[in-house]
Design a protein around this nucleic acid. Structure first.
Length: 209
DNA sequence: CCAAATCACCTTTTACATCA
DNA sequence: ATGATGTAAAAGGTGATTTG
């Protein structure tokens, strides 16, 4: 791949002549505020030997990770011990732990969010299921109502001289259908709307599972 | 000292452009 | 036309600094 000199060269060109190539790159994503990169203060060509030393070795990181696994907090005694063990400045160890804690917390939050989202999605699915169940039950009630009506009419026809026809719809309906009667006035549209949208709603939800 | 935000730099990936 | 190569920009990762 590219060597360091080439990369520095590229970086320098893009820094000194922003826009030389950018015009060729078409829109695509749209809107991209980007932090411009500043080069080393010690001048581009030079080596600026000392103050660099980025990137810890994998051995160092492994040991740090092990310690972080045991305990996220870092008492100064452990910090100093770790630092000498790793050949690092205690300050570096402290910074590493700070960054690690912050990034661990972020990760944790993301996991928590995705768990909650899954739970929410499941609740939405369950809600749809219950709504369709309500529709089904409502239909059963209507059928039962019709049946009662039918039986009442038949009974009326057979014994019209009977003084007390306890099978009249009015006599049976109030205690049982009363609250549904109220519901059917105001909420019918909602339920039917739910029925009409039911399949679409479910499919939409499934996209997120 | 800590958490949170941000910076600075490095590496990798992506999207094009150019060339053989 | 097509695969290889070069390049800028974007995205991702991480050590370090600043701020409250």
């Amino acid at each position: 791949m590219n060597n360091q000199i080439d990369e520095d060269h590229m970086a320098l060109i893009s820094q000194l002549y922003p826009g030389v190539y950018t015009q060729m790159v078409p829109q695509q994503g749209e809107a991209k505020p980007r932090r411009r990169r500043r080069k080393n203060k010690s001048g581009e060509g030079g080596g600026c030997a000392a103050a660099k030393k980025r990137k810890l070795s994998s051995e160092q990181v492994n040991l740090l990770e092990m310690n972080f696994g045991n305990e996220h907090k870092l008492e100064s005694e452990r910090k100093d011990r770790l630092a000498s063990e790793l050949g690092l400045d205690p300050r570096q160890v402290a910074v590493w732990f700070q960054n690690r804690r912050a990034r661990w917390k972020n990760k944790k939050l993301e996991e928590e969010y995705s768990t909650l989202k899954k739970m929410h999605d499941n609740v939405v699915v369950e809600k749809c299921r219950l709504e369709s169940e309500v529709l089904q039950l409502k239909e059963q009630i209507m059928d039962a109502k019709k049946e009662i009506q039918r039986l009442a009419e038949r009974a009326e026809g057979v014994s019209s001289n009977s003084p007390s026809s306890s099978l009249s719809v009015e006599a049976v309906e109030p205690p049982f259908l009363g609250e549904f009667g109220v519901v059917s006035e105001g909420y019918d549209n909602m339920f039917y709307a739910a029925e009409n949208n039911y399949i679409h709603g479910m499919e939409w939800v499934n996209l997120y599972l």
